[in-house]
Each structure stands twice: as structure tokens, then as C-alpha cells.
Amino acid sequence: MRVIIDEDKCVGAGQCVLSAAEVFDQRDEDGIVALLDATPADGLRAPVEEAAARCPALAIEVLP
């Protein structure tokens, strides 16, 4: 699995961090998403896909 984020779309809602804190964080200065792991283990697929689904700005893409 590969995760791609679009920082320009991110609105800093933080839903990704709530869903998958192992993969996502937020920058202190502006709350924009920070990708901690672009290729997380398959065991994290469900929370990563949940994070992408909950993102109000659709700033997260999950690829196989």
C-alpha cells in the first residue's frame, strides 16, 4: 500500500490523525497533514482507508 497526500487540499481537520496516528500527524504551525509513513504495513490498511474516507478535503489517496 502507498499513501499520497495533497497538502494544498488539506484543511487541517485532523480526522486522519484520529483514524491512523501511526501514519499521519499534523504540523504544529498550521495543522496541515504530515505523512509519517508513505508505505505503511498492510495491517494498517483499514485505519488508513478510514482516514482517507473521513478527510473532508479528500487530500489522501491510498494506492495498492
Rank of each mutant, 00 (worst) to 15 (best):
E29T: 01
Q15S: 14
A59E: 09
E7H: 10
I32M: 09
V11D: 01
V23A: 01
L18R: 11
L35T: 07
E49M: 01
G14Q: 02
A57R: 01
V48S: 08
I60F: 09
A13E: 11
A59D: 02
D37S: 06
P47N: 07
G14M: 06
V33F: 06
D8M: 04
K9C: 10
V48M: 03
V17F: 00
G31F: 00
L44H: 09
E50Y: 04
M1A: 09
A51Y: 08
V33W: 02
L58D: 14
R45L: 07
R27E: 08
R27H: 09
L58W: 13
Q15F: 12
A41I: 13
E22T: 04
P40V: 08
P64G: 13
A20L: 00
P40M: 09
A20M: 09
V62I: 12
D6P: 03
E50V: 07
A46F: 05
V62C: 10
C10A: 12
A34I: 13
C16D: 01
G12H: 10
D42R: 05
P56W: 08
S19I: 06
C10Y: 07
D6K: 12
M1F: 04
I32L: 08
L44C: 04
A20C: 14
D28I: 06
T39G: 13
A53N: 14
E22P: 03
Q26L: 15
E7S: 12
E7V: 12
A52S: 12
T39E: 15
A13N: 04
A51G: 06
L58T: 12
V23N: 07
R2L: 03
L36K: 15
L44K: 01
L36E: 13
P40F: 08
D37C: 11
E29R: 10
D6V: 05
Q15P: 00
